[in-house]
Design a protein around this nucleic acid. Structure first.
Ligand code: FES
Ligand code: FES
Lengths: 154, 154
DNA sequence: AAAATAGTCTACTAATTCTGTCAAGTATTA
DNA sequence: TAATACTTGACAGAATTAGTAGACTATTTT
């Protein structure tokens, strides 16, 4: 129930690899493909979309690859997912592009809206830097950060 | 992104109608269909599944229909959704029936797990009674309840 | 200049999941 | 026994997902 597409999952994992190389130059699709077990062809599609959105830059030719446009701490997971699949919208009623005539008087609308907001807040408050920190400390820090929920959404 | 199926949405709305009739006898599929704009045939499928799960009971023959098995305050939205579509599993890696060989060392696994737990806690803490209260006060109470998040999950 | 590296872009398709419909039942009550 | 209402399983069209393929452009190295 409530599955996240593989596209989004792969996108975040690819962004993590690029983020790791933030201080050491561009990361190639091939490297990402090998480290994250995702086909080069599929990654091309995903990264292209993220590049057009402006959250990564690309460098062509030998020695090229992808680089983050901002520091890892300034790119949230929510931002990545939104670029790949639009805003969080648990139901079509909540999607700005779709909407619903039943909204007023609908008993469940506020329920889904409220849940959607919680999810979005969570995703917007988590950054690539958190993933990097988490991977260094075997995930313990990630858990701490999310449980305490101290940081404020930008 | 992260859509909830119409089946789940209709399921909750149908359960709401049945919950409203908790003190006034069985509610028929036809009534639910009319009030919630969902086809009788589709509701049959959905309600049957919920009946088999034991969260509603059915009464056959004239005057029959569906009744809640417990009071509205004891049936959480999470329980309804789980019966219809299995546990919350943002990724297949988190699904007990699927799993993933990459779990150890996967940088995003804890992220999705953590998000899934938050979603589940939200859904398990919200009951049909909350929906009823919300519909009576035009949703204001629902918002208050969710924002404060005081209640404890059973 | 040529070769090698690396990203860009568009189209297409196979598979899966979703969203239902349909028809032929069974059980209960008036 | 007629009417009401739930029960069950099969099926199908539509939409989405998940990916592949191939031809192209840009940059650097030799
Ligand atoms: S059905 Fe669209 S808002 Fe509830
Ligand atoms: S890819 Fe399965 S746990 Fe991360």
């Amino acid at each position: 129930m409530l599955r996240l597409s593989t596209k989004c999952q792969y996108g975040v994992r690819a962004m993590f690899e690029i983020a790791k190389g933030y201080n050491s130059g561009p990361v190639t699709i091939k490297e990402i493909s090998e480290k994250q077990d995702v086909s080069v062809a599929y990654l091309e599609q995903i990264l292209n979309q993220l590049r057009k959105a402006g959250i990564i830059k690309s460098v062509k030719g030998p020695g090229g690859g992808y680089i983050l446009d901002k520091e890892p701490g300034s790119i949230s997971i929510g931002a990545i997912l939104r670029e790949l699949e639009g805003p969080v919208a648990i139901t079509s009623c909540l999607d700005p592009k779709e909407g619903c005539i039943r909204v007023e008087g609908c008993v469940t609308h506020l329920l889904w809206k409220s849940l959607g907001e919680k999810i979005e807040a969570f995703l917007d408050n988590m950054t690539l830097q958190d993933l990097i920190n988490g991977s260094e400390s075997r995930g313990e820090q990630l858990i701490t950060i999310t449980r305490k929920g101290k940081r404020i959404r930008k």
